[in-house]
Measured scan of single mutants.
Amino acid sequence: YTAFGDLEVFLHGLGLEHMTDLLKERDITLRHLLTMREDEFTKNGITSKDQQKILAALKELQ
């Protein structure tokens, strides 16, 4: 049995499950992801397509 964390649930909701391992390897938490700047997305290997999905979701949360 494995409990999913906030990061996994957030990514799954956006259809971005493939990013879970990448972000965990880089010790990026959901809190960090929510406050990242555009250059940090790129530096951490997050594609512009995935970045757009994340940023759109963040706008909806605000």
Rank of each mutant, 00 (worst) to 15 (best):
L7F: 01
T2G: 06
F10R: 02
D21V: 08
T2I: 06
G5P: 15
T47W: 05
T20M: 12
H12M: 10
H32I: 06
T29H: 06
K59L: 06
H32Y: 05
V9F: 07
I28N: 00
L23Y: 03
E38K: 09
L61E: 15
Y1Q: 05
T29Q: 07
L16Y: 00
Q62L: 05
K53F: 03
Q62T: 10
K49N: 11
T42S: 12
T20Y: 15
Y1C: 14
M36E: 01
E40M: 03
T2P: 07
K53A: 09
H18N: 07
L7P: 05
M36F: 07
D27A: 08
L11D: 00
F10T: 06
A56D: 13
T47P: 13
K49V: 10
A57N: 10
R37M: 08
G45V: 02
L30D: 01
G13D: 13
M36Q: 01
V9D: 15
K24R: 12
T29D: 09
H12I: 06
R31K: 13
H32N: 11
L30Y: 07
A57R: 13
G15P: 01
K53G: 05
L34W: 11
D27Y: 01
R37S: 14
D6V: 00
K59M: 10
E40P: 01
K59C: 09
E8D: 12
L34D: 02
L14N: 09
M19W: 04
I46D: 01
M36G: 01
T35W: 04
D6W: 02
L58A: 15
H12G: 14
Q51M: 09
L30A: 06
L34N: 05
L33R: 00
G5V: 07
T35E: 11
Q62G: 08
T35K: 10
T47L: 08
L22I: 08
D27T: 03
Q52Y: 08
S48F: 10
M19V: 13
L34G: 08
T35C: 08
Y1R: 10
L33G: 00
Q62I: 05
N44F: 13
F41C: 07
H32P: 02
L16R: 01
K59D: 10
E38I: 04
Q52C: 07
L30E: 03
D50F: 00
T42N: 09
L14D: 01
I28P: 01
L14R: 07
Y1N: 10
L14K: 08
A56V: 11
D21E: 14
H32A: 11
F4P: 14
D21G: 10
L33E: 00
